[in-house]
């Protein structure tokens, strides 16, 4: 009995790993390499805050009405959050993003930085 459940456990873990791998491959195929006119789209609470082209270096301090903030840095064609008021700092620790549909999320501030290719593809139309 115990042996059998143990075997099922391992089988379960295997199935979840395969699913995760499949999801990962799917995501990778989905994230096309960036084109020259890619931009970082900043959303706050689902509303567009601004768009920042990745080929122009910029440091933007995004202030929220409640006093919290995130600092977005565009450098070497990558977007990164380098400073934030949120307690967990997950967005700050997140690595810089540059590929289509990659994103940095700050849940406490409801802020999302998402990479978009300049031209909207059909794929975008479906996912959004």
């Amino acid at each position: 009995m115990e042996q059998k459940t143990k075997k099922n456990d391992i089988l379960l873990i295997g199935v979840i790993l395969v699913l995760a791998l499949a999801a990962y491959v799917g995501v990778s195929i989905f994230q096309d390499a960036t084109t020259h006119n890619a931009e970082a789209l900043v959303l706050i609470d689902g509303e567009e805050y601004g768009r920042f082209p990745l080929d122009t270096d910029v440091v933007e301090r995004i202030e929220l009405p409640d006093g919290s903030y995130n600092v977005l840095v565009i450098e070497e064609g990558k977007a990164d959050v380098t400073e934030a008021s949120c307690p967990d700092g997950i967005c700050v620790n997140h690595r810089a993003v540059s590929r289509q549909k990659q994103s940095i999320t700050c849940l406490p501030n409801k802020l999302v930085v998402e990479i978009r290719n300049g031209e909207e593809s059909d794929v975008d139309a479906i996912t959004n």
Partner: peptide, 11 residues
């Protein structure tokens, strides 16, 4: 956060 692309964290 009304952002579907968060699903990329799922794997």
């Amino acid at each position: 956060v009304k952002t579907v692309s968060l699903i990329y964290y799922l794997p």
